[in-house]
Simulated scan of single mutants.
Amino acid sequence: MASTARIPSLPASAATPGRRERARGALLGLAVGDALGAPAENMKPSEIRAKWGRITGYVSERPAGTDDTEYAIFSGLLLARHGSALTPAHVEAAWHEWIADRAEGPFRGAGFSERGTLENLRRGLAAPISAQHRHAWSDGLAMRAAPHGVFAAGRPDEAARLAAVDGSVSHDGEGIYGGQAVAAGVAAAMAGAPVVAVVASALAVVPEDSWTARSLRRAVTAAHLGERAVRAAVVIGGYPWTDLAPEAVALAFGAYAAADGDFAQAVLTAVNMGRDADTTAAVAGALAGATQGVDAVPARWAAAIAPARGTCLPAMAGHHVLTIADLLTPETPS
């Protein structure tokens, strides 16, 4: 088991969150949303209600982050190592060093896009050819894109650029756009932008006529009507897989907008809409956590977030999201 000595202490409360507090809020919010949403993944709202009623907190005995949190840590460590100089070659090398060239955990790389990427890398294919698989449109980049927004706080265009570099190994098309939207939204929220500006920043970095942009616009337009309207506006009814980036990203932004940036309301809205609930709640949590800062994450939820177990990526075991947040927001000497 990872040592709790590696868990950094939470900062003191402040009226207006600083950059470090927003960074911690974003990545802790991601991990909390992931852990809250994991039991409801791939479920319909009616199935959630039948099993738990309305989810208002953790419903598992040992809540923990899934592949979403571990891949976000992966991207955070990659940014801490290379910063704005990040290249596709750096990303590809990290996939080999930390995942492809070592034994995987029980989740075996997790989602379809990750499995396809690993298979291609192990066959000797390089980026961007490594992203040519059947699930390049998945939300696998979106789930790990928040660290780019944390690193490029206040610079949505740069956050989106870095997300595209990161995603070049594993995603293409709408899969890239979803990651860029999340990265840009978090970057705007890190600078204290209001909810409407966070959404606008996300839309500004993706093609206007893309599936991602259309879904995102529909979601936030319906947000004032509540989660049922958001879900109806974007979910692809009858499609069996729930990891579509345009759908998941839109649901996350819709939950964030419906909650007007409130952390607890945003993540619970995302969780109770079902579908890819761990990812949608993770993204909503990252956006709201960056907006409100780490103190907005309820202490009872934050306390459950321990260092990563390495269930999916053994190389990430022992790393805590708060440590990653601190690495991406180094304090300047006074």
Rank of each mutant, 00 (worst) to 15 (best):
A233P: 15
W52V: 03
G25H: 05
G25Y: 08
A188K: 05
A286W: 04
E247H: 00
S113M: 12
G310T: 08
E47P: 15
L118V: 08
L203Y: 00
G185E: 09
A306D: 03
S13I: 10
L313R: 04
A306Y: 04
V182Q: 08
R20T: 15
V249S: 00
L203W: 01
A266G: 01
E174I: 02
T221A: 05
G274R: 01
Q180P: 15
E208W: 11
T117K: 01
R123Q: 14
R155S: 11
Y71W: 15
G293F: 07
I176A: 01
S210T: 09
L86T: 14
V91E: 15
A93R: 10
H319D: 13
L216A: 00
V283H: 00
A193C: 13
P330G: 12
Y58W: 15
R115L: 09
G226Q: 12
L118N: 13
A183Y: 06
N272A: 02
E97V: 07
I236W: 13
T212N: 01
S170P: 15
A303W: 07
P194H: 05
A5K: 01
S210L: 11
R155D: 13
A202Q: 01
I48C: 02
A317G: 14
R218Y: 10
R20C: 14
R54V: 14
D34H: 01
A93D: 15
S9H: 05
W52G: 01
Q265R: 07
D209F: 14
M190W: 02
D278Y: 11
A302N: 07
A264H: 03
P298V: 05
V220N: 03
W211S: 00
T329Y: 06
G289R: 02
R81Y: 02
P63Q: 05
Q132K: 13
L327K: 02
A264L: 06
R115V: 05
D278E: 12
A103F: 09
W241F: 10
L251R: 00
F263V: 12
G124C: 07
D278P: 15
P298A: 10
S215E: 08
V297C: 06
Y177F: 12
E104L: 14
H135V: 07
D67N: 04
R102V: 12
V59M: 10
G29Q: 12
V205E: 08
T280K: 00
G293S: 12
A126G: 13
G140I: 06
L203V: 00
T323W: 03
R81I: 05
F74W: 06
A223I: 08
T279A: 10
G65A: 10
G76Q: 02
A222N: 03
A35Y: 09
A159R: 04
S60I: 07
V230I: 10
R108L: 12
E21T: 08
A290T: 00
P333L: 10
P307G: 04
A245H: 04
Y177Q: 03
A288E: 13
L225D: 14
V321W: 15
E331V: 09
G18T: 08
A302Y: 08
P45L: 13
H96G: 14
R217T: 09
A152F: 11
D68L: 01
A308M: 04
L225T: 08
G254H: 02
G226F: 13
R122S: 05
